[in-house]
Amino acid sequence: MEQTQNAVLSVRNMSMNFGGLRALSDVDVEVRSGEIVALIGPNGAGKTTFFNCITGIYTPSEGQVLAYPTNGRKMRADGARSDGVRINGMRTNLVCELGMARTFQNIRLFPSMTALENVMIGRHCRTRAGILGAVLRGPKARREEQEVVDRSYQLLKKVGLEKVANEYSRNLPYGAQRRLEIARALATEPFLLLLDEPAAGMNPQETLELKEMVIRIREEFQVSVLLIEHDMKMVMSLSDRIYVMEYGRVISTGTPAEVSADPQVIRAYLGEESDA
């Protein structure tokens, strides 16, 4: 299979087995530079498993996951090649360091850390201070620390959470927690942002704001976005392209218009809620 120009992520023939269960089979997904791509499908279709496979939480049983970092990022791990970095089986933290940052379907913030500190965690892999730096607090370490604080605060501002910077993240309302997860992911300077149901549990107003925020983020941070979402209105109006999954397979792909016209999709997924 030839590589499309300016792809940032290319997943080829990926399969994932759990014991005898085939959770994903022969999945091909591609995200191009600057795109917002959505992954939709009924519950249990394997969308989150797909995320886990490309972020190193699971190692895919078969297939290739290749990333093409756009920020000129160098890799510490083996297999760094000019024609893409093979990331299946790579450790989760290295995938993040490479520039693919995610959020979680069931929010996974650090509850007894403040909102600001949650974002600061995202800066970890872009900073270097060690034990000595932390203890001695030399000028270099102090400068780095201040840079972390300031950038994290700016990111909180971008998602509208600067007023609650010093609140424990467990005390934030639901929608704010979702936005905080996005800010935390952005702090790792990703080229690809992976959002797992960012609008889940949000009201229509919040969802609308979220949509605008994602578009804004793409412009400002020059990231590509791959998101899993159930909110059809949001998906249709936000994404450049859509992949539809069912029973671990990609059954359709294309622009929102193409996908919603695909009879297979209507049968499998939109059928019961096509007027939503």
Binding site: T92, N93, R108, F110, E117, H124, G133
Partner: peptide, 22 residues
């Protein structure tokens, strides 16, 4: 410090911690 925050993140949620590049 940077290290201390990483420890805390580790304590709170190992998977999220690793997924954030630690």
């Amino acid at each position: 410090s940077r290290i201390g925050r990483a420890w805390l993140a580790l304590r709170e949620d190992e998977i999220a911690c690793q997924a954030m590049g630690i």
